[in-house]
Design a protein around this nucleic acid. Structure first.
Lengths: 333, 333
DNA sequence: TTGTAGGCGTTATCAC
DNA sequence: GTGATAACGCCTACAA
């Protein structure tokens, strides 16, 4: 592999000049520049990013640590991030923490060790120190989707409480009596906020949340399935369910289909997060949609901005959700 | 940020000893080792991966360059890769080429510049040189899902031709007369192989493929939608469609639903690639399923093996698909 | 077993 | 504007 010294020799200039030509910041005699470029072409020279990173103490790589690559919610967000990153001349690498705090720690260590320019993360663990280690090492952190209190980093979130409240209120309005909630692990801020919104809506309707109708699952399809099954096995099963994420909604739906229950006749269903196939499923599923692409963009813009101005005040941006009413929660007898 | 020299000073040893303790290959006096470890803890030392990479001319990072993060096909494959990688002490970073040859080139350049230990890719372009540049620079390449002839790299594929043939034969058996095919861009080996399987099945049934019933789309939902619409607008529309990937199947399905056509009464549907919601959609969708997790594992194992033995003969592994018959292609009048 | 020293390929700081 | 030179932090012959 050719180095700048090889190029320098061939172009009859110094390595410093080659570097200057390649980086284009400083002015170089056009004649020399041309010779350098020619030599680069002839030798097929490509800059060694690792050496450059070592010298500059920084990469042009952004790490996006997401809790589940299988979740369409995140994959759409990633597009938003990439669009901003590439405009900023940076590349994005995705890391899949799989809702697993150990894996997450590993990837944080990778981002740190590889001196990535920044990290966008939807935290799977509640280990604040890991993330603060990043930011105190000069690698800015932007949280997206989920917030971890005490982390020095910007955040882009949606109004989970409000979205959940709207969803639940909608079920109340439709006349459902025993509205259950399947939510996620307590350490995820989204899970608790959405549960709170659910409770709020019931209280606003003069009811009380009933603990036998609440389940904490794992934000995955199997968790949603099992939670649904457990709810149906209650003495007094629910006539409606609010599920706080998309994969669990799929699981819950599978469970209902298996048991040949009619939706929304026997049990109504509202999910959080849009799914690409919401309109294809019969009945179509009512969801609380998030502007996922926008969340990605916003997070990426915050990151770009913080890289440019490390000392800005921390920002916390809240986007709005929107209720998409479909067949799974309407036309109740 | 502390360096090994800081640790060395604190532990009263040389930097070389620190390095040895940290890497654990060579033997070090236990007393010294303990002092080193203590110093590491006290200083919160973390090894600078960039410096290490520069010195060793290698990372412990694998790049997985996939053509579409939104496709559940790939996300499941990624799990398979990660499981093998972490067993090999490596970390996986995902790069999304978005079926865009430019983006793909960029990520290949990143992998090269960052001296990644290896690349697993499902090629979106047909630019053989890019990939051969990688492998000739000592960064092994494993192709997965799609093969590019002329690339020096291992490959893990499925028997696309056979899978497509089975799917089409199934439609023939069910009595469909005008079987259409929506396939992907010509540069993708999967698209052409699956089209060939479709043709084979028709010929085996004593029929001829009819070009007015064949569409080349972009492997994305919108492409499937538009291709379906265009097929339905034919003078003699099809009574069955074989769609060669999952996202296009979704698009085609949306189109059929929009036009209020009955599936499989008016038009039967078989898709390639499993989708997580295949059983939830009404009617459920017949698919040609691939062992995606296994493909990921196999690719990762090939990569690990090639990193260990760079001079092994190239391997080409073909896995089998399986037809999952569901409602969208059965009970024809 | 341990330490010394050189170098991985770049970029930034100097003189010129 | 250009060139020499010293880091960046680590690993690994080689010497002791």
């Amino acid at each position: 592999m050719a180095t700048i010294y090889d190029v320098a020799r061939r172009a009859q200039v110094s390595a410093a000049t080659v570097s200057r030509v390649l980086n284009g910041r400083e002015t170089v005699d056009p004649a020399l520049a041309e010779r350098v470029l020619a030599a680069v072409g002839e030798l097929g020279y490509r800059r060694n990013a690792v050496a450059r990173n070592l010298r500059k103490q920084q990469t042009s790589l952004w790490a996006v640590i997401i809790s589940d690559v299988e979740n369409p919610f995140f994959t759409s967000m990633v597009r938003g991030i990439e669009d901003v990153a590439s405009a900023a001349g940076c590349s994005v690498v995705l890391c899949n923490s799989d809702e697993n705090p150990e894996k997450e720690s590993r990837y944080i260590a990778v981002a740190l060790g590889e001196q990535m320019a920044g990290v966008i993360i939807s935290p799977s663990s509640d280990r604040v120190e890991d993330l603060n280690l990043l930011s105190s090492s000069g690698c800015p952190v932007v949280m997206v989707d989920r917030e971890l209190k005490g982390v020095r980093g910007d955040a882009v979130l949606v109004d989970n409480e409000n979205g959940a409240e709207e969803a639940t209120a909608h079920l109340v309005e439709q006349g459902y009596e025993r509205i259950a909630c399947i939510t996620g692990p307590q350490r995820a801020s989204t899970a608790t906020e959405r549960l709170r919104g659910y409770r709020n809506a019931l209280e606003a309707a003069g009811r009380r949340a009933n603990d036998t109708l609440i389940r904490m699952a794992n934000f995955r399809a199997d968790g949603g399935h099992d939670a649904m099954a457990s709810l149906l096995d209650e003495q007094q099963p629910p006539d409606a369910v609010f599920v706080t994420n998309n994969l669990m909604t799929v699981g819950a739906l599978e469970c209902l289909v298996e048991r040949r229950l009619d939706i929304p006749g026997d049990v109504a269903l509202v999910g959080f997060d849009e799914v690409p196939w919401a309109d294809l499923v019969r009945p179509s599923i009512t969801t609380v949609a998030q502007p996922t692409y926008e969340e990605g963009r916003a997070a990426a813009e915050l990151l770009a901005r913080r890289i440019a101005e490390p000392d800005r005040a921390l920002t916390r941006q809240i986007l709005r959700t929107s209720l998409r009413v479909r067949a799974s929660s309407t036309s109740h007898p």
